[in-house]
Amino acid sequence: MRFERRDHPSRALTIAAPIGAVLAALIVAGLLIAIAGANPIRAYGLILKGAFGSRLGISETLTRTTPLILTGLAAAVAFRARLWNIGGEGQFYLGALAVAAFGMIPAIGALPAPLAILLCLIAGAVVGMILLLVPLGLRLKFGVDEVVTTLLLNFVAVLFVSLMIEGAMKDPLAFGWPQSVPVPEAAELPKLLARSRLHAGLLIALVMAVVVWWLQSRTVFGMRSRAAGLNPRAAAFAGVPLGRTLIAVACLSGGLAGLAGAIEVMGVKGYVTTDLSPNYGYSGIVIAMLANLNPIGVIAAALFSAVMFVGADSMSRALSIPSYIADVTVAMSLLTMLVAIFLAQYRIRR
């Protein structure tokens, strides 16, 4: 048995790949649900009902989709250039922390809302960028693999958040709970839907997906970052400035992850804690792969993950299946997606 590369992967296969991958993951997860003694069909019905069956469900699903689109984009732009940014989680947290720190400046709270929001968003993105530029610098200067350094920095970042919210940035009115001072009212993102948690961050995330799509498919930067990923040596030979391209990619990727954290704290929570992110950074990697690194596909993949997470919460209450089943399904879909992409690109010959 051998694998042979297809000359032109057909469009149908490229579209069928993620659908097949998700179905395969759902079947495996269905088996796990059945082993736990529940009916998988009923469980999936409850998941869909939980995610879409009510006004609250829909608004919660979309609220959850928002940070996932941004962390998914962060991973997608980096992976396209073969910059292995696994540090989305840390960038998310520091982005969120930056907003809270910025909000402590009295002048920010006194600004008109649009300006305060803009400044806080920029602060979050810039801090996310800086956290990724450090490991990229180590790679360019010393040849240190960024996979491990970005992973390790995630732990450092969360500890730093913990340090700040128990120290300099602790909210004195939180009855001793370790949480940061709240974001000033002027910097809170407006709600999209009354009496829900859905906020304008969703629109920002959607706009960013289009911006990233445009950057990648319509600009010199996009062409260069793809070339740097496909074949760095050939790209350098053709005159692509590799270092500068990677720095730009890192700014975009880290910035998006930092923005995700900033938006989450400005739109949902209002203050920073060390459980602000249920692994949004790591989920972003799965989402980017499920989308086959396509920015518009990221929106669909983020929605799928959000449906699983929100739906599994209500399903687990009804059937007493651990809600970790959502994590299992999403992680499984990453593995099945890798195989699906492979099958779309290769044919099996005997």
Binding site: F79, V147, I285, S320, P322, D327
Partner: peptide, 29 residues
């Protein structure tokens, strides 16, 4: 299959750890 070792490894980590938590919660609800 020769798939990306980075992404596959991360996928294994995400899958193995969430699977562990799932089984743990089943064992001790």
């Amino acid at each position: 299959l020769g798939l990306s070792q980075h992404v596959t490894g991360l996928g294994i980590t995400l899958f193995a750890s969430s699977f562990s938590y799932y089984v743990f919660r089943l064992a001790v609800p």
